[in-house]
Amino acid sequence: MSEAVEFEAPAASAVKGMKKNGKQWHDNKTAFRPRANQTSYEKRAAADKALAAVKAKEKEMKDEKAADKQRRVDAIKTKRAAKEERERFAKMEEKMHKKRVERLKRREKRNKMLKS
């Protein structure tokens, strides 16, 4: 018992006595300061600029992805159209003479060039 026990009292600002209404579990009210959480115009402008840069990059990436997908779709469509045309001419060759089919091919190509 020769050891002395040191007891630290809480800071003086923390102890303010009993509340008048008896509700010690509520926090003490502070002064109303409506401009307390506002940021300066420069900070807001910098944040807006950074957000705009991010949005532009996202849009660029989305456009690039969409263009790539459209390229693949177009390639598939052209391959299918060419395959259908080959099958159609093969079917015509079964019925007609080969030279006549080649003549018709050339004529169809000329018509396609005129239309487009």
Rank of each mutant, 00 (worst) to 15 (best):
V101I: 00
K57F: 01
E87G: 06
K19E: 01
K43W: 03
N21R: 03
I76F: 12
W25E: 14
E84M: 10
Q38I: 01
V73R: 08
R107H: 12
R106W: 01
P10N: 11
A9V: 13
K23S: 09
E108L: 06
Y41W: 12
A81Q: 05
E3R: 07
T78I: 13
E94F: 08
N21S: 06
E102M: 07
A90Q: 06
K57Q: 01
Y41F: 07
L104G: 00
A52V: 04
V54Y: 04
V101G: 00
G17F: 04
A9D: 15
K65F: 07
E108A: 02
R88M: 14
S116C: 11
G22V: 03
A50M: 12
R86S: 10
V73H: 08
M92P: 00
E93W: 00
A47E: 10
L104M: 04
S13R: 15
K55I: 04
T78L: 15
K49Y: 12
R110A: 02
K99V: 13
N28Y: 07
A31P: 00
R100G: 08
A53M: 07
E108Y: 03
A31V: 02
K20P: 04
S13I: 09
G22F: 04
A36G: 02
E84A: 15
K112A: 13
H26N: 08
K98S: 09
V15F: 14
K105T: 00
T39N: 10
D27G: 07
S116K: 13
L51Q: 15
D63I: 06
A46Y: 11
K79N: 08
A53Q: 08
H26C: 11
R71A: 09
D48W: 09
D68F: 15
A36S: 05
Q70S: 11
K109W: 02
A67E: 14
R71H: 10
K16I: 08
N37T: 07
A66I: 12
R107N: 09
K95S: 05
A81Y: 06
A4C: 08
A52T: 03
D27R: 11
R35A: 04
M18L: 15
A36F: 06
M1A: 04
V15L: 15
S116I: 11
R100P: 03
A75R: 14
R35Q: 04
K55A: 03
A36W: 05
K62M: 10
A82C: 09
R71Y: 06
K65C: 10
K19T: 01
Q24I: 11
A90H: 03
R72C: 07
Q38H: 02
F32M: 05
K59C: 01
N111E: 15
M61L: 10
K43E: 03
M92K: 02
M61C: 07
K105H: 00
T39F: 13
A11T: 12
R71K: 12
P10F: 10
K16P: 03
E8C: 12
T30M: 03
R71E: 05
A45K: 15
D74A: 13
K112P: 01
M61E: 13
A36E: 10
K99L: 14
K55M: 02
R80K: 02
P34Y: 01
